[in-house]
Nucleic acid binder design. Structure first.
Length: 487
RNA sequence: GUCCUCGUCGUCUAGCCCGGCCUAGGACACCGCCCUUUCACGGCGGUAACACGGGUUCAAAUCCCGUCGAGGACGCCA
């Protein structure tokens, strides 16, 4: 167990995405760290959907987020809770703050506020709400109320002093009160806004640790102020460094795939992706990189999270993916590969007709050189159908020797004559033929591979032969005479 | 503009808190070699970094100050 206090209570962490977009890489990393932290401490992982902005939230996005989390294996213990269903609680909490003198009504119109903000922006000045309505006299308020002027509720931020809080990642952070404006709690349609709902929920759900992106550090002082106003103890905070694109700007659509499910569709293994995400902003401290879930959980700690932003490096992801694919059993890979084939509508019939054992052994043969789950659609094709294309470059490279037109059929007949068709006997037959005809074995081997699979790259030839079987191997070798090449 | 934060190879990072063991370690990528029947895998080796400038100290990547650079936040969005 790590040293930071859990106050003798159960650790409770939440992941609180807003369903205004998909679960993107940054969100997924946050969710992962939340989950790892909860699991490490044997605590509870709570999922809360922050959909107070009804216009921008949608059920599809919620489903997308859940889908992404399931894909990554991030299971939650409580929820999902929806903030949109808890509006009354937030309103009640807001009234409490009004009564206790921590909040006041603001009658400024959004339009005038925007004007003031734009003006300040134009003059390159810092803008902060002036607090106009904070100092309204009771008669002024009466007049506004009588006229039915729309009102928002604002939090009364202390005018002097500063707020300071410890962060598990960044250490101590201090902000002067005068930097913080009187933020809105309830908008003029009487809807709660972010800070209010977050704090009310975190209190009510007894969240002990808030682990979230560093884009929230500047929100933290406001939220702590709210805890104090509610006379509640704030949770502990840990802010995660951001994930950047190759251009070192915040990750966005222009960097390609955004949602994590897009990575699934690209053929990444969830365990590889999760391992990769874990290494973005965190390291176990020694040189270990490949870690299974249990190890990740066991070794995870907030103090090992580093403070600088990290660039998302696809090449490293690819490497991890290859490592994981190579180390996975065919049984593990099979359903994923199958799903990929189905979604791509590739040679469905051939695959459907194949025996399970044959499918698995083919997968075993090919997995060590698969870069992604999707690769199998191409590299596996020739093992399931006789109608596969012969790659032109491969033919040009390995089939251009004229003698092959005789050598290949000859090889075919030698193989056919074999009583036992094994790795050893195939190799013997081929090498004997090469010696007899005074050609390099490599010539025959490379040519045969192209004929058998349509590709210049792939598994060792004799493995391919065994996999295909004697008949198919022979037939395909004989096919050379039917081929025409452009030299 | 204001505030907050960060700054070790191209990238992810170890080391920094508790100065000497750092002629700065690992991984990805890149380049060579080996293995080999192709492509991978694997093995071996190589290029490559403490942003800069001042202090403090016998000694600084590590402590202090400044500069520069980068990122984030500044909504009746979350």
């Amino acid at each position: 167990m790590s040293s930071h206090s859990t106050k003798g209570e159960e650790v409770r962490v939440r992941f609180a995405p807003s369903p205004t977009g998909y679960l993107h890489v940054g969100g997924a990393r946050t969710a992962l760290f939340d989950w790892l932290f909860a699991r490490h401490h044997g605590g509870r992982f709570i999922l809360r959907i922050e959909d107070t902005d009804v216009e921008r939230s949608s059920p599809e996005m919620v489903e997308g987020i859940l889908e992404g989390m399931r894909w990554l294996g991030l299971d939650w213990d409580e929820g999902p809770f929806f903030q949109s269903e808890r509006t009354e609680r937030y309103r009640a909490a807001a009234q409490e703050l009004l009564k206790s003198g921590h909040a006041y009504y603001c009658y400024c119109t959004p339009e005038s506020l925007k004007e003031r903000r734009d003006l300040a922006m134009k003059e390159k000045k810092n803008y902060k709400y002036e607090g106009t309505c904070r100092h309204l006299s009771s008669t002024e308020i009466e007049t506004k109320e009588a006229a039915g002027v729309p009102r928002a509720l604002r939090f009364k931020v202390p005018e002097s002093g500063s707020i300071e809080f410890p962060d598990h990642v960044f250490g101590k952070i201090e902000v002067a009160h005068e930097q913080i404006e009187d933020f809105v709690l309830l908008n003029s349609r009487n809807h709660p806004t972010y800070h209010l709902s977050v704090v009310v929920d975190d209190m009510e759900m007894r969240i002990t640790h808030v682990v979230r992106g560093a884009d929230h550090v500047s929100n933290t002082p406001k939220q702590i102020l709210l805890y104090r106003a509610f006379d509640a103890e704030p949770p502990e905070f840990a802010h995660l460094p951001l994930i950047l694109g190759p251009d070192k700007a915040k990750l966005s659509k222009r960097h390609g795939a955004t949602s994590v499910t897009a990575y699934r569709d690209l053929g990444y293994l969830p365990e590889a992706f999760r391992n990769f995400l874990a290494l973005l902003g965190w390291s176990p401290g020694d040189n270990t990189e490949i870690m299974a879930t249990d190890e990740l959980i066991e070794r995870f700690s907030l103090e090992k999270i580093n403070q600088s932003n990290a660039v998302f490096d696809v090449q490293k992801l690819d490497w991890l993916n290859r490592q994981y694919i190579g180390a996975s059993t065919a049984e593990r890979l099979a359903p994923l590969v199958q799903k990929a084939l189905e979604s791509k509508h590739v040679w469905r019939e051939e695959y459907a007709g194949a025996q399970k054992e044959y499918f698995l052994s083919t997968l075993d043969l090919l997995k060590s050189r698969m870069h992604s789950i999707n690769d199998f659609a191409e590299s596996g094709q020739a093992f399931f159908t006789d109608v596969y294309e012969i790659d032109e470059a491969a033919a040009k490279k390995n089939l251009k020797e004229p003698d092959l037109k005789e050598l290949m059929p000859l090889l075919a007949s030698r193989l056919k004559a074999l009583d036992v068709f094994t790795l050893e006997t195939c190799e013997q037959a081929l090498r004997a033929l090469a010696e007899e005809k005074q050609v390099k074995a490599g010539l025959l081997i490379n040519a045969a591979r192209v004929l058998l699979t349509g590709r210049a790259v792939g598994p060792p030839l004799f493995h391919i032969m065994i996999q295909l079987g004697k008949e198919r191997t022979a037939t395909r070798l004989e096919r050379i005479s039917a081929l025409t090449f452009h030299h």
